[in-house]
Design a protein around this nucleic acid. Structure first.
Lengths: 130, 130
DNA sequence: CCGTATCCGTAAGGATACTG
DNA sequence: CAGTATCCTTACGGATACGG
């Protein structure tokens, strides 16, 4: 998970590398997007997240949740019951980010096979990596 | 309603974690976006890239260029002159990806201070990480 | 000019066991 | 239920030196 770089001077305007970097530094980790998607429809409990985000370990779930909460993308609510009940809810900011991912999703789907083909051809012409 | 955990790797439709992952797996590295941006306006030579992508090492430039070329995002052209002249050009696919980054850029700029504030507050309430 | 090769430090993330 | 604590492996990336 991307840890916080102190501060970066990213001037506004067009698409700039360091601005995109800001996003990736928050959400470029292995599990962040999965959690974002899992919480996009409404608050989700810890164990439920563990089920929905397939393959995640309890440790990485906790760590990623903490980072997302710290960045203001998730709100953590503890209900002081027995047994404890903790809910994670996406903030407005997170939902906006979620919407911004539509473009990337579309791109990935459009070019999925093209990428696969490109890789296959590259590996044919040059040696397979290794 | 939460959709079941189908075996389908990256089904089409809405925003899905694994689909976004496909993009991040190609372009989530530290330097990929920088190179993408640097080549978005036209073909660029190796040394020029080294200058434009600030802070990149020769090694990482080469590695990242190879990966982008392999995925079909860059086209590498060698002009057999002396001294050699190698140009890297963004493909159509890459330019489409570049356009898809506008949404992310907008998001980052809109919420930059909100994120900074959230982090500061989190670190005040809990301990500063470490 | 355009790379490779080699060495090395860090940190992301997995496995596993324990707890309020 | 919702986490921590520890240990460990790996892969990303920096520094440096060399080569066609």
């Amino acid at each position: 998970m991307p840890q916080g770089n102190s501060e970066m001077p990213c001037a506004p305007g067009q698409v700039r590398a360091c601005t995109v970097r800001e996003v990736l530094d928050r959400v470029g980790g292995k599990w962040s997007i999965g959690i974002l998607v899992a919480t996009a429809q409404g608050p989700v409990r810890f164990t439920e997240l563990e089920r929905r985000v397939e393959g995640i370990s309890r440790r990485m779930l906790t760590l990623t949740l903490r980072n997302l909460e710290r960045d203001g993308l998730l709100r953590r609510t503890v209900h002081p019951t027995v047994p404890p009940r903790v809910e994670y809810a996406a903030t407005g900011m997170a939902l906006e980010l979620y919407e911004s991912l539509v473009a990337l999703t579309t791109w990935a789907e459009r070019h999925r096979t093209a990428i696969t083909d490109a890789r296959a051809e590259y590996d044919r012409e040059h040696g397979i990596p290794g």
